[in-house]
Design a protein around this nucleic acid. Structure first.
Lengths: 247, 247
DNA sequence: GTATTATTGTCTCAAAATGGGAAAATAATA
DNA sequence: TATTATTTTCCCATTTTGAGACAATAATAC
């Protein structure tokens, strides 16, 4: 079979990455009232993975995570949070790259540093869905958004990594007010509420939600948004504090 | 100068540890109304470090952390929580082992894998102070408890690791009810309150604290504790749910 | 015994936060 | 001008929390 993936330099670790250590980021987006994650399809397979990469020997892990995200999304300023490090000894033994990939130089790959045991530092990123330009990496041929409730088969323990990232996101939603990073600059109250309901997984009451949000004094009310619908036009808001900030 | 430290096998990584990756644990204890951490004194120096170690190639990170803790404390069942991974590229460049140690085989050490850049997975452990048997490791000549408010000079970024661990502990104190792991099997309400006040760093009201704790229905009231003091004897309680559990 | 002292445990009321229903406001359409 | 579908505001009952006061009690002093 023809080799389609360019692993030049990777197999020999020419970039001098820290061996046995990887970074994987769960990239969350919000679109049409659904919480989405950006995934990469492993080349010529039906198996998907998180956006991941490695840490250069002279590079901090946060900058490494941001570099990887920049490459996958085209975005410069991204809300990023480290949430857990995954290091079960068997974690890379299910749906291994070697199992999935079949591109001729298998033997070379099997013996390379890439096919060894990895400990992976998990980050999650919150992005404005509409601004992302999904871009595959050397190991993948496609990047696409998936509804969190309808995930495809995933490599390694990446499914578990997503589940745990969502847990962290839920826990931080109220305390750190991170939700705003999933929305565009301006948004309506119903949009914000839908975001909260989607992330948390249960419905909230309009009146009390609005009272709570306005009571925190973190929103600035802009003008009204006339959508053309035959009903009262909602106000547009923007988040007072500068979005982003973390890592 | 005479070599006092036994680094046999370490310099050549005979145990086949994952390179560039370490584990460090902040071991919390509670004694005489003070929050303590167990530290190790780097051999022949005034610099102290957390309990740390490395991960074997065929070992999960949680078991590795538990193994290290077992060796330092003599305890078998320990409440352990992974809270953050530290990977700044310069983190091991302050107060390096090579800077501190001066035991003859310096050159050999400087070139060894031990003196390279490390990413460290941070755990914190909650233990019953009175049950711990502090034991130094190959790099240290002494193990001792320190009040969190009176820490000695520390190696690398270990001071920062402690600060961040305390943050996590505070955040988990109420939600996960982890505090009980710092107390003996049975305890009085004032003891429990003092623990909370010490961890959180601010005073609480007796009446409301008791109402809250009893209201959660997690405490079992045992008999009274007669201390010999000229006042009402407090009740003893024990935590209903089995302590420990995490990792 | 009885009073005293130092704590611990309980009670109560006010204030604040939350849950939940209903009414008012309003943008387009009929 | 009435109607419809939302958004926004208002209000009240309930729960939770804050804070002071009081009751209980174990040893000691007298």
């Amino acid at each position: 079979m023809e080799r389609k993936i360019d692993l030049n330099g990777f197999l020999e670790n020419k970039q001098n990455f820290i061996p046995h250590l990887s970074i994987d980021s769960v990239i969350f987006g919000f679109h049409q009232d659904q919480l989405k994650v950006l995934l990469l399809r492993v080349h010529d397979s039906g198996v998907w993975s998180l956006s991941g990469g490695f840490v250069r020997m002279d590079e901090g892990i946060d900058p490494a995570a941001l570099r990887i995200l920049r490459e996958r999304t085209g975005l410069e300023n991204i809300y990023l949070e480290q949430y857990h490090t995954f290091g079960h000894e068997e974690r890379s033994k299910n749906n291994t790259l070697a199992d999935i990939l079949d591109f001729g130089h298998t033997e070379e790959f099997r013996n390379s540093w890439l096919n060894k045991r990895f400990v992976s530092i998990g980050y999650y990123a919150l992005v404005d869905f509409s601004k992302v330009n999904p871009t595959p990496d050397s190991f993948s041929d496609k990047a696409a958004w998936f509804d969190l409730k309808d995930l495809p088969p995933m490599i390694f323990d990446h499914r578990e990594m997503i589940d745990k990232a969502l847990e962290s996101l839920r826990a931080n939603l109220d305390t750190k007010l991170v939700g705003f990073n999933l929305l565009p600059e301006t948004f309506t109250m119903p949009e914000l509420q839908s975001l909260y309901e989607t992330v948390l997984g249960y419905p909230l009451r309009r009146n009390n939600f609005q009272r709570k949000m306005l009571g925190m004094d973190i929103l600035e009310r802009i003008e009204k948004l006339y959508t053309g619908a035959a009903n009262k036009a909602p106000y547009l808001y923007k988040f007072k504090a500068p979005s982003i900030e973390a890592v």
